[in-house]
Every structure is written in C-alpha cells, then in structure tokens.
Amino acid sequence: MRPPGNPPSDGPIDDWPSSDLIGSDRRGLPPAGEKGDIDAVLAVLEQVPDPEVPVVSVVELGIVRDIDWVDGRLAVNVTPTYSGCPATEVIEQHIHEALVAAGYSDPLIQRRLSPAWTTDWLTEAGREKLRAYGIAPPVGSASKRSLTGQSDPVVPCPLCGSNATERVSEFGSTACKALYRCRDCLEPFDYFKCL
C-alpha cells in the first residue's frame, strides 16, 4: 500500500515538493590540518557534548558549520537541528563557555539556518556512539522519500542487532527521534530519524 499523505505519482502535483527538502552545501568545515588554528578550535568543540544526547559532541552532530575569525575575534557558526529545538540556546552557551575556558576571549556564536541541518552531517564516529548508547542512528541518507514515509527503512535494533523492529510513534523523547520497538529482544528504543 502506498503510504498516505503523498501526492499521487501520476497526479497534478507530481513535482511536489518543488524544492529540495535536503539542501546541503556539503562544504562544512575546512579539512583538518588546513589551518592549525581551526584544528585547535575544533579540538575544544569536540569536548562540548549535545545536552540531550551527551555521548555525541556538537561537532559529531554536524551542527558546527563554520569557524572563522572576524576582526581578530573567533566566530563559530552553529545551525539548529529543528526550528524549535529547546537545546539550541544551551548548546550555544556551552560552546561559548568552552571557548572562553580554552582562552578565546569573547567568541562570537552565530546561528545560521541555511542550509538547513540534515542528519547526513552526523559523522561516522557520531553514529557509532549513538548506537553504543542505545539510539539507532539514521539509516541511509536523508531524502524526500524518507521524510514523507514513502520508504520506511529497516532500522536494526541498537541493542541486539535484529532487523525485526517496528515503529511505535513518529516522535520519541525529542523532536529528532522516533520511537521503535524490537520484536526479538522486545526492548523499545529511540531512532534518530533522517531529516
């Protein structure tokens, strides 16, 4: 059965959505080693955990988008995961505190909306840490199909590895997660959904 809520493939709104749901400049941070200073800043930010999922750092989560110097002042660009993510301010504050503690005076923390965050920016190490923590990392790449539910992926249980899992609810303990259940080990778990 075709999942509900999607435009019919042969209908008048075949081209919906007209825009890319997943916009990515794929630019992100400069490659490691290109600028020694940036590596040093990254090393500090790698110690700043996400407040909701403390096993991953803000760098691993992919929300640190740019590091630069503006008139001699360090500027870090951060993008929110969801528009209403209540952790956004706390994360910015923690980044500020960590940088000040590391000796950067008065760093500028800027919020950037575009391009919108995608789970594709979660690093490999971040995904592995999520799994070890009991949260299933996003399966595959973010796409229109994954968002509209046209292709629901098989989400392996992060606890026993079984593929016999089912979705209980589109939302879990935070906006970025869905609630799943394993039919083999019977444990419920959070799935970090593709966005």
């Binding site: 509900p4 809520g5 959505p17 968002l147 966005l195």
Partner: peptide, 20 residues
C-alpha cells in the same frame, strides 16, 4: 526562503503523521 526551507522538513513530517 531560509526559514521556509527549515520549516518545510518539519511540516512534511507533520503531514505524514496527521494524514495517517
């Protein structure tokens, strides 16, 4: 355009749930 692009992902997921 920027705010809309961010919101669109969320609204798409909302529609999926409300239609279901």
């Amino acid at each position: 355009a920027e705010v809309a692009a961010k919101s669109l992902k969320e609204a798409t997921y909302h529609l999926r749930r409300s239609s279901e």
